[in-house]
Amino acid sequence: MIESQRHSYHLVDPSPWPISGSLGALATTVGGVMYMHSFQGGARLLSLGLIFILYTMFVWWRDVLRESTLEGHHTKVVQLGLRYGFILFIVSEVMFFFAFFWASSHSSLAPTVEIGGIWPPKGIGVLDPWEIPFLNTPILLSSGAAVTWAHHAILAGKEKRAVYALVATVFLALVFTGFQGMEYYQAPFTISDSIYGSTFFLATGFHGFHVIIGTLFLIICGIRQYLGHLTKEHHVGFEAAAWYWHFVDVVRLFPFVSIYWWGGI
């Protein structure tokens, strides 16, 4: 008998991270409400909660990497389960964004009298879609192309080249975020300027937040690629990051077309 296990599934060890993450989420929610209502200690509780969540994310995913790379628990069937799980997560993310575009379309297709019966609302000066927004779209799409380059490098066993490709991917991602930050800084309206500002910053802001998450995910993949964790046979973490990145890429096209371009004329 060569098997060290009687089945190919990964029965995880008891872990403190689910409860620590839950407590962090509770502190964040309560602290956030307290902070926004100017309660004493609100900011402190909010910060504590966020630190707790960030710490939990770090140690939990560190444990997952140990279980897969160092302990070999991620067999074929476990990898399949991880892929299914991640695909379902991305589907839920698609629905999350669908809600924002629904809100934006609902408000812009039949503008109410309160905003002058027109879109963009009366008195709102909008951004020119053919300046930074148009530049940023191909930057993010190029980043998506670069992550495909990294994928092919991994599949071909070109380990160094995969690191270079991931550096290029992350670089383009950072340029995108930089431009987006500049655009926010220079925007002639704020999130409290009518339904236009609300829907604009909700959709583009959550997209930007997802770009930052994806960038962190890709940076971790780059470090793991550099350390030799990813092989051409087994790189589920990278695959998940690439899927996530393509999702963020595709989602960018919707605000560009419907909010910046169509909603800006």
Binding site: I2, S4, S8, G72, H74, T75, K76, H234
Partner: peptide, 26 residues
Amino acid sequence: MPIATGHEREELEVELQGKKILEDVN
């Protein structure tokens, strides 16, 4: 043999011999 350890490695070793791990049982 790809870089792997633990049960994942056992699975790959059996696969290299053209078999599947735990085939008789499953």
